[in-house]
C-alpha cells in the first residue's frame, strides 16, 4: 500500500488498532477519532476495507448474525500494525519538526545591542 496513507485509511487502521470492529462501529470510531471531521459512508468504507484486505493490512476476525443481520468484524494484521506504527512515527517526526520551527518563530527576539553606549 502506498504511503503516506490518506487520512481515512490512516483513521480506519487506527480505529482497528484498539479492537476488532464491524462496519457500523468503524464508521463511528473514525468519526470520533477525527472529532467528526471525517465522516465515512458505507460505500466508501467498504471500498477502503477491500483495498486494506487485498494489501493484507486488515483481515476478517469473525462473523456474527445479530437480529438476522450479518456483522463481519475486521481486525488489524501484524503487517497492518507495523505499517501503522511506521506511518505514525513518520508523522510524529514531522509534527516535532514543525512544532520546533513554530516555537522558534513565535519566541520573542531580544533587542540587539548595537552602537555606542555613551
Amino acid at each position: 500500500m502506498e504511503t503516506p496513507l490518506r487520512e481515512p485509511t490512516f483513521l480506519i487502521l487506527t480505529a482497528l488498532a484498539a479492537e476488532p470492529l464491524h462496519g457500523y462501529g468503524l464508521i463511528h470510531e473514525v468519526a470520533r477519532l477525527s472529532d467528526d471531521r471525517v465522516s465515512l459512508r458505507p460505500g466508501t468504507l467498504y471500498g477502503a476495507l477491500d483495498r486494506l484486505l487485498d494489501a493484507g493490512l486488515v483481515t476478517v476476525e469473525r462473523e456474527e448474525v445479530v437480529d438476522s443481520r450479518l456483522r463481519r468484524y475486521y481486525r488489524l494484521t501484524e503487517h497492518g500494525g507495523e505499517l501503522l506504527a511506521d506511518e505514525t512515527e513518520r508523522m510524529r517526526r514531522n509534527v516535532e519538526a514543525a512544532t520546533a520551527r513554530l516555537t522558534a518563530r513565535t519566541r520573542p527576539r531580544l533587542p540587539r545591542l548595537s552602537g555606542e553606549t555613551a
Binding site: 462496519g23 458505507p42 460505500g43 468504507l45 450479518l70
Partner: peptide
C-alpha cells in the same frame, strides 16, 4: 447485505428513502 445492513444501522428512524448522498456514495 453487509453494505445495506450498515446503511440501515446508520439511518434515522422513519426514513423511507436513501438520501442523494447515499446514492452518490453507492
Amino acid at each position: 447485505t453487509e453494505i445495506v445492513d450498515t446503511y440501515l444501522a446508520l439511518s434515522s428512524p422513519g426514513r423511507q428513502w436513501p438520501s442523494v448522498a447515499d446514492v452518490s456514495d453507492l
